[in-house]
Deep mutational scan, measured.
Amino acid sequence: SPQLSSEIENLMSQGYSYQDIQKALVIAQNNIEMAKNILREFVSIS
């Protein structure tokens, strides 16, 4: 969805990798808010 694409772009601009974002979305069943929480908790931005 376009909204999801812009959310993904936004997260990538914050330093998350596309791969990590995709993984979080799978775990969160495409719930972007939950995916963000997963990324915040489990992915360290280098």
Rank of each mutant, 00 (worst) to 15 (best):
S1A: 07
S1P: 02
S1R: 04
S1N: 12
S1D: 08
P2A: 08
P2W: 06
Q3A: 05
Q3Y: 08
Q3E: 06
L4P: 03
L4H: 06
L4A: 03
L4W: 05
L4S: 09
L4E: 05
S5N: 14
S5Y: 06
S5V: 09
S6G: 08
S6K: 13
S6D: 07
S6E: 13
E7V: 12
E7P: 06
E7T: 10
E7L: 08
E7F: 08
I8R: 02
I8L: 05
I8K: 05
I8G: 02
I8Y: 02
E9L: 08
E9H: 11
E9Y: 03
E9W: 06
E9N: 09
N10K: 13
N10W: 07
N10L: 13
N10H: 08
L11P: 04
L11E: 00
M12E: 04
M12R: 13
M12Y: 03
M12N: 09
M12S: 06
S13T: 08
S13F: 12
S13A: 14
S13V: 13
S13L: 11
S13K: 14
S13R: 09
S13D: 09
S13N: 13
Q14C: 05
Q14G: 04
Q14M: 14
Q14I: 13
Q14H: 05
G15M: 02
G15W: 00
G15E: 02
G15K: 03
G15Q: 01
G15C: 00
G15R: 03
G15A: 02
Y16M: 00
Y16T: 03
Y16L: 02
Y16Q: 00
Y16E: 01
Y16V: 04
Y16N: 02
S17K: 03
S17D: 10
S17P: 10
S17Y: 00
S17L: 08
Y18V: 07
Y18C: 01
Y18P: 09
Y18E: 13
Y18R: 12
Q19H: 03
Q19F: 01
Q19Y: 05
Q19L: 06
Q19W: 10
Q19R: 13
Q19N: 06
Q19G: 12
D20C: 09
D20V: 08
D20R: 10
D20H: 05
D20F: 05
D20M: 04
D20T: 06
I21P: 01
I21G: 01
I21T: 02
I21K: 03
I21M: 00
Q22F: 05
Q22W: 00
Q22M: 11
Q22S: 05
Q22G: 01
K23C: 05
K23Q: 11
K23T: 07
K23I: 06
A24C: 07
A24V: 05
A24H: 01
L25G: 02
L25W: 00
L25N: 02
L25R: 14
L25E: 01
L25H: 05
V26A: 11
V26E: 10
V26N: 10
I27L: 13
I27S: 14
I27R: 15
I27T: 14
I27F: 13
A28M: 01
A28W: 01
A28E: 02
Q29T: 06
Q29Y: 04
Q29R: 12
Q29S: 09
N30H: 11
N30G: 07
N30I: 00
N30D: 11
N30K: 04
N30W: 04
N31E: 11
N31F: 00
N31K: 14
I32Q: 12
I32T: 11
I32V: 06
I32N: 03
I32P: 10
E33H: 07
E33R: 09
E33G: 13
E33A: 11
E33Y: 05
M34T: 15
A35Y: 00
A35M: 05
A35Q: 03
A35K: 02
A35C: 07
A35D: 07
K36A: 07
K36M: 02
K36G: 09
K36S: 09
K36N: 03
N37T: 12
N37D: 11
I38K: 13
I38A: 09
I38R: 14
I38D: 08
I38M: 10
I38Q: 15
I38F: 15
L39M: 04
L39C: 05
L39F: 00
L39Y: 00
L39D: 06
R40M: 06
R40G: 12
R40V: 08
R40N: 11
E41A: 05
E41F: 01
F42Q: 12
F42S: 13
F42C: 05
F42G: 08
F42W: 15
V43I: 12
V43R: 14
V43T: 15
S44E: 14
S44G: 13
S44L: 11
S44W: 01
S44N: 14
I45F: 08
I45S: 15
I45C: 14
I45W: 04
I45V: 13
S46Y: 00
S46H: 02
S46L: 07
